[in-house]
Design a protein around this nucleic acid. Sequence first.
DNA 1: TATTAAATCGAACGTTTGTTCGAATGGGTC
DNA 2: GACCCATTCGAACAAACGTTCGATTTAATA
Lengths: 210, 210
Amino acid sequence: MATSATREKILDVAEELFAHQGSRATSLRAITSAAGVNLAAVNYHFGAKEVLIEEVISRRLVTLNGQREQRLLEVRASAVAAGRRPETAEVLMAFVEPTLLFPQSGTGAGNFITLVGRAMADPDETARRIFVRLMQPVLQLFAELLAEAQPELAPEVLYWRLNFVIGALSHTMRGIDRCPLPLEIAVAKSAPELVRLLTGFLSAGMLAAP
Amino acid sequence: MATSATREKILDVAEELFAHQGSRATSLRAITSAAGVNLAAVNYHFGAKEVLIEEVISRRLVTLNGQREQRLLEVRASAVAAGRRPETAEVLMAFVEPTLLFPQSGTGAGNFITLVGRAMADPDETARRIFVRLMQPVLQLFAELLAEAQPELAPEVLYWRLNFVIGALSHTMRGIDRCPLPLEIAVAKSAPELVRLLTGFLSAGMLAAP
DNA sequence: TATTAAATCGAACGTTTGTTCGAATGGGTC
DNA sequence: GACCCATTCGAACAAACGTTCGATTTAATA
């Protein structure tokens, strides 16, 4: 019962529409008509629109955060095994790479990354509350590892640099399917190339003299 | 006629509510009741909600972009006068400093910075279309000066690094009144200190080996 | 085939939304 | 004091929203 064809179709269509118009601007009628199901199906399968939003986010975010956590713990483990500190570059890579490569993990996964990139800046409490709650643990681990990589960095400097990292990453996530800035020099890049560009940029920023 | 007390009050209240809930989630009734004016006053003074949104954004953004453009042109002029290339750090400073110090320019200016930081990530076409149109010229100049500072950088690398800069800056703008990430190490910083932290981070990122 | 529970459907509910309109109000000018 | 134009006001409009409900269909079980 947890998985029905109608239920899955609603989730897929909602994910796509939420990604491109936001959850608030997307009506249940737009979702159900695009999915070819009855309007009442949403409330039958989910109970309320807010629950649907939560399920769209958590459905894939749990997987993504699992990948990020595993990569981060691997970085920590190999550093401990070698009796050294984790390197800033590999910590960043462990968080960024699963994120930007996630769109290749399946149909609709690209929409999800756009959606998450926007949830971080969403003024709507509904979406952001759900999102923050799911992100908190892995974000905490990410912050800890960055601190272990640069123990000499003052906590407040680390905090703000972490914000700059999250800002650059989320902006990249939002524009992963279309160029985020409308400039003449706009050029699309492959996902692996983007990973290299972004982690290089962020590593240099994190390692800058404070 | 261009400035009436009612008109200004509507703009101020709308700016505050838009900043904290988004323009789409803010109803005209919420604005007019908070402003203590009649509901019909909005359509009398602005014609439509979309025009009000546009006016809220453009009212201060024209000023802010003027400051940014002046600073950028000064950087270029002094570089030309000295027969050298502009430095990446001073180009970044010319764009970032007016932005993050703008909240001190008057009552409500802080709300505006939050608002603009969100407009950049807004899925709603209305707000983003207005915003992009107003930002395009100064963004173009910003990109040109960064290219002049690092002529050896490949255009596509420059483009994406510019996106990372905009992402980090807009995320900082969104969280300027409250800590953006809910972490234990969260610490507030004064605006000038934030400017120094951000430009230091971004300079290192821009100057990283490609 | 008869029974039963899950699933789908059409239709309506009450709110809230942006917008419109004619009447009422307000000073400033002849 | 009479007139006038800008402004304000109360009231209503149609449309769109999330949600609810009873009837109907579907599919599996006995």
